[in-house]
Amino acid sequence: MPRPRTISDEEILAAVSRVVGRVGPARLTLATVAEEAGIAPATLVQRFGSKRALMLSLHQDDAGLVRERLRETRDEGVSALDSLVTNLVGLSAPVADPVAFSNHLAVLHQDLSDPEFHAQARRHARAMLEEIQALLGRAVDAGELRPVDLTQLARSVQTTYNGALITWAIHREEPLESWLRRELGALLAPWRAGGA
């Protein structure tokens, strides 16, 4: 009979994400992940097989995770626009340090150059876009936003979010949360009901 697992795959993948944030994907090894997770490297090999498989597993459910995070405050009596901004800010929490951001940005290089990682990145981006559009639709229905091309505005929100992460990491003038809130607020302001 196999021995019970002392650590879940989710806990291991959380350790992988922390290691990526500290050292980036190129310097990540099974040994550093094992040390972070408090397990033997052989356990990682047994469960995942290789560093590549481990990294693919890390991003396997990114689309589901982004959906979950963008729905976090949706039903808590918070306005749809406030939910949108708050949830996008929450989504950025793992990269709120410039070093962690640059290390996670290195993962994007891998996402763009490897077909399997790229497929995961596209699913993540599509899920994010759909959830942004859903929240914007709720904002229109609630009278928070003027009627607008929701597809285009959702794309603009996603583009602003991603661009703001990069410009924040370059300028480093204030915390990421306030940087994101300002940039997203400026984008949405002309479309708010009664806005300029």
Rank of each mutant, 00 (worst) to 15 (best):
M1N: 13
P2D: 09
R3D: 11
R5V: 10
D9C: 11
E11N: 07
A14V: 03
V16L: 04
V20C: 00
R22K: 15
R22A: 15
V23M: 05
V23L: 07
G24N: 02
L28Y: 01
T29C: 02
T29S: 12
A31C: 04
E35R: 13
E36M: 08
E36I: 00
G38H: 04
L44Q: 02
V45K: 14
V45Q: 11
V45C: 08
Q46G: 11
Q46C: 10
R47L: 06
S50I: 10
R52T: 14
L54Y: 06
L54E: 01
M55H: 03
L58V: 02
D61L: 08
D62I: 00
D62F: 05
A63K: 00
A63S: 12
G64F: 07
L65G: 12
V66C: 03
V66M: 04
T73A: 13
D75S: 15
E76A: 15
A80Y: 01
A80W: 01
L81C: 09
L84C: 00
V85I: 14
N87Q: 06
L88C: 02
V89R: 07
V95P: 03
S102V: 12
N103D: 04
H104V: 03
H104C: 08
L105W: 07
A106F: 04
V107A: 08
H109A: 13
H109Y: 13
D114I: 09
D114P: 04
P115Q: 11
F117V: 08
Q120W: 07
A121S: 14
A121F: 13
H124R: 14
A127V: 07
M128F: 07
E130I: 11
E131R: 07
I132G: 00
Q133M: 14
Q133I: 09
L136I: 03
R138I: 03
R138E: 13
A139N: 02
A139P: 02
V140Q: 07
A142G: 05
A142T: 06
E144Y: 02
R146T: 12
P147D: 14
V148A: 12
T151N: 13
Q152K: 10
L153T: 01
A154M: 00
R155G: 07
Q158E: 11
T159M: 14
T160S: 08
N162A: 15
G163K: 10
L165W: 13
I166S: 10
I170V: 15
R172M: 11
R172P: 06
E177L: 09
L180N: 01
R182F: 07
R182I: 08
L187W: 06
P190K: 11
R192V: 10
A193K: 15
A193W: 13
G194S: 11
G195V: 04
A196Y: 12
